[in-house]
Design a protein around this nucleic acid. Structure first.
Lengths: 244, 244
DNA sequence: TAGATCGTATCATACGATCATTAATATGAG
DNA sequence: CTCATATTAATGATCGTATGATACGATCTA
């Protein structure tokens, strides 16, 4: 019925999918514009604007006579929400998983420290609400994990630092992966609930160091959760429908 | 002589400058396309592609009948190297400075931990080279600070984590600000040199905790450096020519 | 008068053709 | 064999037009 996606957005998503999906890996050159037009069934204007979008995100570079080249991953805007979605949608390899977990262990405990110092009454209420939603849905998986994402996002917001808040899309993406994986051990939710409780308690108690440690334990728990499942199978994650 | 910038890039920079410079603050609407064309002296196509670039970075949204609106800062891709440059070029307010320093205190000590565990021989050599350049140029400010930036960037690379490496542009931008500010106290270079030495030593000694603490001291030293100058004067920073 | 419906003007969106610019490659002279 | 020059294939940039979506105001109804 209604058209939620514009032609431009479709075009961007298609090319991005080719890149993250390995059809055109870093270092390769995309077909020339006329070929892309016929391939995608759109005008040259749309292709050009889509390419400009991907250049802006660091996935491509262009130049006369050199064509449209796929940049190495080191040039990509790894914190860009769209880039994050495209990468996770293409499957999560071990390197990406390790890097994201390292990152979580670095800044989520730190965010808890800041939150314990700076959280407003509204911030604490939002965290508490997210926790309540989790507790109320320990058996209904969908709602539980939506609340889980909200819990972590609320803490990032409570740190009152724009750069921490901007990490929410990355956390959301990795949590969605963890969610699909932890479908295996059904009691994962009930087990992690008290860990979340401890985090919320330490923040509300204005205990930065305690909050930091509580979050550290929570994330390490999640890591064991994933490790228990053995090596991550990218195919499984793709099937699980990470992303949209 | 040389035309290093394309019309597209100029156009993007101009509009971005209007946004970060407060000409069109978040919430406002840009003039309609024809007006932008005559204002910038370029065709509609260029304006459209430039707008697409800024939409990709989260600074703008577009829609029929609504025009081209400037998004709130919370929607911007704060880790995008271009966005970072534009913001710092427009002047650094106290909030931005505080947030970046918080971020440095979170990430850089952690990066040192990882570097102490994972650095290859080449990584260590690069860090050592950067330090040698610093030591060799304690009086020549330009070269000293270029080496300083290289020192911190090398450590981020040595952490062997794509997300840490991607923070280099942000660290570079804030270091450039620190550099301009510490012109005041001429002996700042000589004072910070041993702090850098300690960081390099602890990483080379494979001492994660020691490296973490050494970096923490280094950054806190830099903070005192800025604090000594009293409240940060945005005008001064703009004059100092942060960015290109 | 209040409210919902419907037109309409106003934008962005998309298309196609055309010319300019750039840089990798080939060609030629020395 | 080396270096300067011409070729050429790709993006860069412009113009004109047609289409589509939507916020706003006018109109109609209760």
């Amino acid at each position: 019925m209604r058209k939620v996606t514009s032609i431009h957005a479709d075009c961007v998503a298609a090319i991005a999918g080719w890149i993250t999906g390995g059809v055109y890996p870093p270092g390769t050159t995309l077909p020339i514009e006329p070929a892309l037009c016929s391939e995608l069934g759109v005008s040259r204007t749309v292709v050009r604007e889509a390419v400009k979008t991907l250049v802006a995100k660091g996935l491509l570079t262009t130049g006369p006579r050199v064509g449209t080249r796929v940049q190495p991953k080191s040039s990509w805007n790894l914190y860009d929400p769209d880039v994050i979605d495209w990468r996770f949608a293409a499957g999560v390899d071990e390197d990406l998983l390790r890097d994201v977990i390292d990152l979580r262990l670095t800044f989520e405990p730190a965010a808890c420290e800041f939150a314990a110092r700076r959280a407003s009454a509204e911030d604490l209420a939002r965290i508490e609400l997210a926790y309540a939603d989790m507790a109320a849905a320990v058996d209904g998986h969908g709602r539980y994990f939506a609340a889980d994402i909200d819990f972590h996002t609320s803490i990032l917001a409570a740190a009152h630092n724009q750069f921490f808040a901007a990490l929410s899309p990355l956390i959301t993406a990795i949590l969605k992966v963890s969610i699909r994986l932890s479908v295996r051990n059904r009691d994962g939710a009930a087990a992690s609930l008290p860990l979340h409780r401890a985090v919320a308690d330490r923040i509300a108690a204005r205990d930065p160091e305690g909050a930091r440690l509580a979050m550290q334990r929570l994330i390490l728990g999640a890591r064991e959760d994933i490790d228990r499942g053995g090596p991550v199978d990218p195919a499984f994650i793709v099937i699980a429908g990470v992303g949209r």
